[in-house]
């Protein structure tokens, strides 16, 4: 059976162990560690890409085209145009690991602002923001991306815009829920009674207490955004060439899947490993920071 209301003595004892730093507690979770390892691996690869001894990700090796299998020159083989898959993977990681966190960061700023305003003020501000969010949330996420990117064209900027439109309402809803619970806390009343202004209350009294939930959410959203960027690439709506793009790599080679499956399998696996990393990290953090 599950643990029920932890008896009094243990509750008292537990406050002790909470002195351990929040960030340190992540290291006690095995899932978080695996996630952290996967993410760190790709971040390191992306950062080190220019100094790694890799072939160019965009040059075709005509000799390898006939035999695109892994070799000493091309560790993971080449794609249908004879370009080195490993190099394309690692340079592709640079793209995805800069675009996805950037998009999520912008979406978080917009979403948190929306949620804070709606939750703290309530009334008509809440109604307007919540109704607007409901409309966006009624769209399936992917349809938003497809309609937007197909019409305004694929670029980093537009992916950021699309991510913001698609994710900010969800982030706003989470923030609003948190703020609704927190604003009734007595320390908020105490802050009002010492003439703190609203912006101060939001940023200093409320936001820090939403921190852990929002970090976990951001982590999950980075994972989703990586998937979305991959899907856009796969649909032919990815960043324009010559940017190597994992989804695009799959799209280009999926037609020859029955001949050279590795060309599609490798970028697919890379994408899954990175997303898995973020998802495990988020899960580990949630476990570690559970109140």
């Amino acid at each position: 059976m599950a643990t029920l209301d932890i008896p009094d003595a243990v509750q008292v004892a537990r406050t002790k162990s909470q002195t351990r730093s929040n960030w340190m507690r992540i290291f006690y979770s095995r899932t978080a560690l695996v996630g952290l390892f996967l993410v760190t691996f790709w971040v390191a690869a992306a950062l080190l890409a220019p100094i790694l001894p890799l072939p160019s990700p965009t040059d075709s090796d005509v000799m390898a085209m006939a035999n695109p299998y892994p070799s000493a020159a091309h560790w993971l083989g080449t794609d249908i145009l004879g370009r080195d898959i490993l190099a394309r993977l690692i340079f592709g990681a640079r793209t995805v690991l800069s675009v996805a966190p950037l998009s999520v960061a912008v979406a978080m700023i917009v979403g948190i602002t929306m949620g804070m305003l709606a939750g703290y003020y309530g009334g008509w501000i809440d109604t307007v923001i919540s109704r607007f969010s409901d409309i966006i949330l009624a769209f399936p996420v992917l349809v938003i991306y497809v309609i937007l990117i197909a019409n305004i064209g694929p670029s980093v900027m537009n992916i950021v815009i699309a991510t913001t439109i698609a994710s900010a309402p969800g982030i706003g809803r989470i923030t609003r829920g948190l703020v609704l619970g927190l604003k009734e806390q007595e320390y908020i009343a105490a802050a009002r009674l010492r003439a703190e202004n609203t912006l101060y209350i939001m940023l200093v009294e409320l936001l820090p207490n939403c921190r852990s939930m929002l970090i976990v959410d951001a982590c999950l959203r980075i994972g989703y955004t990586i998937i979305t960027i991959g899907i856009l690439g796969f649909l032919g709506l990815g960043l324009p060439p010559p940017n190597p793009d994992w989804g695009g790599m799959v799209k280009e080679s999926v037609t020859v899947l029955n001949v050279w499956p590795l060309m599609s399998l490798i970028p697919s696996a890379a994408l899954v490993s990175l997303v898995l990393g973020f998802n495990l990290l988020a899960d580990g953090m949630r476990e570690a920071w559970k109140p």
Partner: peptide
């Protein structure tokens, strides 16, 4: 438990 802000 709610009179002090847990973050500060």
């Amino acid at each position: 438990d709610s009179t002090l802000n847990p973050s500060h």
